[in-house]
Structures are given as C-alpha cells and as structure tokens.
Amino acid sequence: MPSVTYVDADGEQRTVEAAPNATVMEVALKHDIPGIVGECGGACACATCHVYVDEEWVDRVGPAEDMEQGMLDFAFDVRENSRLSCQIFMTPELDGLIVHTPVRQG
C-alpha cells in the first residue's frame, strides 16, 4: 500500500498507509490526522481539507482542476502548491507523498 506523510504546522510528521485510490483527505480522517477537517466529505464543496503539497511532489501530484481552484479561494493562506486533499487520489506513483497542513483551515 502507498504511504502518505502529513506534516503539521509545528513540523510534527505522521506517516500512514493509504488504501489505493483513497483520497489524501479520506486517509487523514481515517487516521485522525490533525489539521484536516473535510466538512463536505470530499465533494469539493469547501476548503477544509486544504494542504500544501511538498515541493518535491508537486509535479507528480499535478495541478488543481478548475472546480478545485475555485474552492481554494476559500482556503487560508493559499500558495502555489496548495491543493484540496479530497482531490488527490493515492496511487502507487504517489507512494511516499508528503503534504503539509496549514496553521488553520479557512
């Protein structure tokens, strides 16, 4: 199974296994990762699962689609590497993915 590492605003890291094709948000909620709320349940209708994709992973994860980009307007402290974790699906190619959570969700 692929793994994903969540790094919180204080620098604490948590690495967990992800079921294939689960979203980064689903994995976070399953493992009680702080900083990921996911109020809309993954419908891309809020920005409470906002993360920063680690710079070394940005190209492999790819850019946000238009709908996601629109939702990011509601996120706190949006950056070039911002994504909604409900829109990142774990695949074998993303094994070892690192994402950072913001200081707070928008």
Rank of each mutant, 00 (worst) to 15 (best):
Tyr6His: 00
Glu39Asn: 11
Trp57Gly: 09
Met90Trp: 02
Met71Leu: 15
Ala43Thr: 12
His50Asp: 12
Gly38Pro: 10
Ala18Glu: 01
Tyr6Glu: 06
Val37His: 12
Arg104Pro: 07
Glu68Val: 04
Cys46Gly: 07
Glu93Ala: 14
Asp77Phe: 03
Arg14Ser: 12
Cys86Met: 09
Glu65Cys: 05
Ala9Ser: 15
Tyr6Asp: 04
Cys44Trp: 05
Val61Gly: 03
Gly35Trp: 00
Thr15Trp: 06
Arg79Ser: 13
Ala75Lys: 00
Gly11Gln: 08
Glu65Phe: 05
Val24Pro: 00
Ile36Asn: 08
Gly38Arg: 07
Glu39Arg: 01
Thr101Gly: 04
Thr48Ala: 09
Thr5Gln: 08
Glu93Asp: 15
Gln105Lys: 03
Gln105Tyr: 02
Glu39Met: 05
Ala47Met: 10
Ala19Gln: 10
Ala22Trp: 15
Gly38Lys: 08
Val16Gln: 03
Asp77Leu: 07
Glu68Asp: 05
Asp59Met: 08
Gln105Cys: 06
Ile36Ser: 08
Pro63Lys: 13
Phe74Cys: 12
Phe76Gln: 01
Val37Gly: 13
Val78Phe: 06
Tyr6Ser: 02
Pro102Ser: 13
Leu97Cys: 13
Asp54Tyr: 01
Thr5Pro: 05
Pro34Ile: 09
Gly106Lys: 07
Gln13Trp: 07
Val53Leu: 14
Val61Tyr: 01
Val4Ala: 04
Ala45Phe: 12
Thr23Val: 12
Val27Lys: 03
His31Ser: 04
Ile36Tyr: 10
Arg14Tyr: 04
His100Gly: 00
Phe89Ser: 12
Arg60Asp: 14
Phe76His: 12
Ile98Trp: 02
Asp32Trp: 15
Asp10Gly: 10
Ser82His: 08
Ala43Cys: 13
Gly35Cys: 09
Gln13Phe: 00
Phe89Asn: 08
Leu97His: 11
Gly11Pro: 05
Val37Trp: 13
Ala28Gly: 04
His100Val: 03
Val99Ser: 03
Ala18Leu: 04
Gln69Met: 11
Gly38Cys: 11
